[in-house]
Design a protein around this nucleic acid. Structure first.
Length: 722
DNA sequence: CTGCCATTCGTTTTT
DNA sequence: CGAATGGCAG
């Protein structure tokens, strides 16, 4: 019989079979992290150290949770049903449904995704007559979520100025609104679960007794609240294993707290730190480059990846004249690789920000190369799906004002802004929900299909018609009775949306036939509620059409956890990567460097890095200097794949793409836009613009990095061509 | 309740 | 430059 442990390297083996002690696993990129995690669980169960129900395994994404369960069932003939393997939010949802009474929530509480949360904030600010110029809804939302993720309720937020005081008031009013409506946003799921366990000794004791082994994936991405959440489940006899890589922490901007790794060491692991440094993904040169780069970071726990494989090819570096030419080069290389037999699917174009995909897409489209862009709207975030779900939410919970507002006049049934304002006032005065106010104000009348009475009648009819029906059939009724189906049928561009609505019925059918999902029905409060929770917690795929051989385009963030035979990383210029907004932030550069590290370590065999002397940004040409990250890579590992050309020589590539700057050069000075210069104090930079004549000539130079943009008077500044 | 124009604003994103 | 709002007129 083959053992679970076959083929593990010594460090992996040590991590998998660590006896009953907590440990921190520092798992480098491509070091078999998921394998260790799942094998550990399987080993614990197989050796009888714990029952499947004694495991608590937490991940960040649904994808990771599913992957873990799939691999687990492949290793052991166990029933994963009832096992606590899931995301922080998914498991919180489960806990809160089970103990909704103790948590002070209705059983059918609805989950607000970020967009729903933003509408809820807007609605609140409107009701409070707040000037949204002064208090932007986005900022208010960010404030509320940020505090929740730090574990702070309104009373606990420190107030040191009137502006913050106001924000705290909004936070408090927002929470009241959510409670009144019976809804919970994403951070609320976590905070509420945390508070439930922190306050309820019996419940906490129960779960601590149950979970003997707690395992956390991507620990470097946890925020403060998530760590506190975990600690509630950890009892005196619990064994914790946190797996993470501080070098791949790229989500500080959304609250990830790398300090959790140090705290975890202090609280649980002590000296039990196992480093997984053998990389099974990339060739040596790629790893050497990644290592050299990341050692520039001051704050890290320290790790060095190595591989048993050879050095492989050098990293190719390309300097383009502009962004279009950069795209042209990439497309040519992609086609060449494709001819050599690399599948498009196994190549990726990575970039720092989504805006960069445009030029690449254009070039790919012109060249007839199939590609797929990740990111953008996901299935359950589409307008028509949101509308349909809002009807369903209203059926499950009539007090959900957010859902009510969304569909009361969609499709339009002649309910104007004035009516709604009156309704909102009535609801506020009576302390009721919009639905209750509507019912009081406009009792359903049979003959009026329009107006508020029509809507009240509609909802009641819908309630009756869907009562007791299986989920997919109920949804079909809702789509037709609400008029959504007819509305999109009539719309010129509605075909896709109609198709999506049908897809929603499909999704419900699949969901209703999924024994996993159905097993939790009782605690979830019925099929409708659990389907709605599923829709909110798992927004679905970004795009359909997977499987076909297409080049993959995505941000570096989106590429985390993936690997490709060949990786192209473009836009390596100061201000873009590292992004200029990060330069001001605390530890911003270090996070950008980790991002670069993530990008490099995605490549198995071939890595291209490119930058452009100029690129179109915000409608104007911007001149950039090469990213500092290029300088931080050992030049012995790099191969420059183009002879350094003067700007003028580039016309050979794109005769029609003459720089806009040429027309702006209306002076006679020897300094040209785009040329490299050296300044005694500021170092090497690029001339960005030139103004004035003769002695009055001033030039603007981008020195990048700490020096940034500078205007220099030629009369005084001593510049020399570089 | 559309549709049109003006204005604004441009990182990264999962749940 | 171009998307994405938001306000206002019809």
């Amino acid at each position: 019989m083959t053992s679970l442990l076959d083929g593990l390297n010594p460090e992996q083996l040590a991590a998998v079979t660590l006896p009953g002690q907590s440990a921190l696993i520092l798992a480098g990129a491509g070091s078999g992290k998921t394998r260790v995690l799942t094998t550990r669980i399987a080993w614990l169960i197989q050796t009888g150290q714990v029952s499947p129900l004694g495991i608590l395994a937490v991940t960040f994404t649904n994808k990771a949770a599913k992957e873990m369960l799939t691999r687990l069932t492949g290793m052991l003939p166990i029933n994963t049903r009832g096992m606590w393997v899931g995301t922080f939010h998914g498991l919180s949802n489960r806990l809160l449904r089970t103990h909704h009474r103790e948590a002070g929530l209705p059983q059918l509480f609805q989950i607000l995704d970020s967009a729903d949360q933003l509408s809820a904030v807007k609605r609140l600010l409107k009701a409070l007559n707040v000037d949204t110029e002064k208090f932007e809804p986005k900022k208010v939302q960010y404030f509320i979520s940020g505090n929740k993720e730090a574990g702070l309720r309104p009373q606990q937020v420190e107030v040191f100025d009137p502006y913050t005081r106001r924000l705290v008031e909004f936070y408090a009013a927002y929470d009241e609104q959510c409670n009144r409506e019976g809804v919970a946003d994403f951070p609320e799921l976590l905070l509420r679960s945390y508070e439930l366990l922190a306050r309820n000794d019996a419940l906490r004791a129960h779960y601590q007794e149950r979970f003997r082994h707690i395992l956390v994936d991507e620990f470097q991405d946890t925020n403060r609240l998530q760590y506190r959440w975990l600690k509630q489940f950890a009892g005196a006899q619990s064994v914790l294993m946190a797996v993470g890589d501080d070098d791949q922490s790229i989500y500080a901007f959304r609250g990830a707290h790398t300090g959790n790794m140090n705290e975890f060491q202090r609280d649980y692991a002590g000296d039990n730190v196992i480093k997984l440094e053998q990389n099974y993904r990339s060739h040596g040169n790629i790893l050497d480059a990644a290592n050299a780069l990341i050692t520039q970071n001051q704050s890290r726990l320290g790790k060095n990846l190595w591989t048993a494989e050879g050095k492989g090819e050098p990293i190719r570096v390309y300097e383009a004249y502009n962004d279009q030419e950069e795209a042209g080069f990439i497309v040519e290389e992609v086609k060449a690789l494709q001819r050599e037999g690399t599948a498009l699917m196994d190549m990726a174009l990575l970039y720092r920000s989504n805006a960069q995909s445009r030029v690449l897409e254009h070039a790919l489209f012109s060249a007839g190369v199939a590609y797929r862009v990740y990111g953008g709207l996901r299935f359950f975030e589409r307008q028509e799906i949101k509308h349909a779900l809002a009807y369903l939410r209203l059926l499950a919970n009539p007090d959900d004002d957010g859902a009510f507002s969304r569909v009361v006049n969609f499709p339009t049934r002649g309910i104007g802004a004035r009516t709604l304002e009156q309704l909102a006032d009535a609801a506020q005065a009576g302390g009721t929900s919009l639905w209750q106010a509507a019912r009081a104000k406009a009792p359903a009348s049979k003959d009026s299909a329009k107006g508020l009475p029509g809507f009240v009648a509609l909802m009641q009819a819908m309630q009756d018609a869907t009562q007791g029906l299986p989920l997919p059939e109920a949804i079909e009724h809702v789509l037709h009775m609400s008029g959504l189906a007819a509305h999109y049928q009539a719309e010129k561009e509605g075909a896709d949306r109609l198709e999506n609505l049908n897809e929603l019925i499909n999704a419900a059918t699949v969901f209703a036939n999924d024994p996993e999902a159905m097993a939790e029905l009782d605690e979830a409060g019925g099929p409708l509620a659990s389907f709605l929770a599923h829709a909110a917690l798992e927004a679905g795929d970004h795009q359909a059409g997977a499987g076909s051989d297409a080049l993959q385009l995505m941000t570096v963030h989106a590429a985390k956890g993936l690997e490709f035979h060949a990786v192209f990383l473009g836009g390596l210029e100061e201000g873009l990567f590292p992004h200029e907004q990060s330069m001001n932030e605390q530890d911003g550069i270090e996070e950008e460097r980790r991002l670069m590290y993530v990008a490099i370590t995605r490549a198995r065999r071939r890595l291209y890095l490119s930058h452009a002397q100029s690129r179109m940004l915000h409608g104007q040409v911007r001149y950039g200097i090469p990213s500092r990250f290029l300088d931080e890579l050992p030049s012995a590992l790099l191969k420059l794949v183009n002879a350094r050309r003067m700007a003028t020589a580039s016309s050979a590539y794109h005769g029609d793409a003459a720089p806009a700057s040429a027309t702006r050069q209306r002076n006679t000075s020897p300094w040209r836009i785009g040329m490299n210069v050296r300044h005694a104090k500021f170092g090497v930079g690029v001339v960005v613009s030139v103004e004035g004549q003769g002695d009055d000539t001033r030039v603007q130079i981008n020195f990048g990095g700490a020096n940034g943009m500078k205007w220099l008077a030629l009369e005084y500044a001593r510049l020399e061509p570089a």
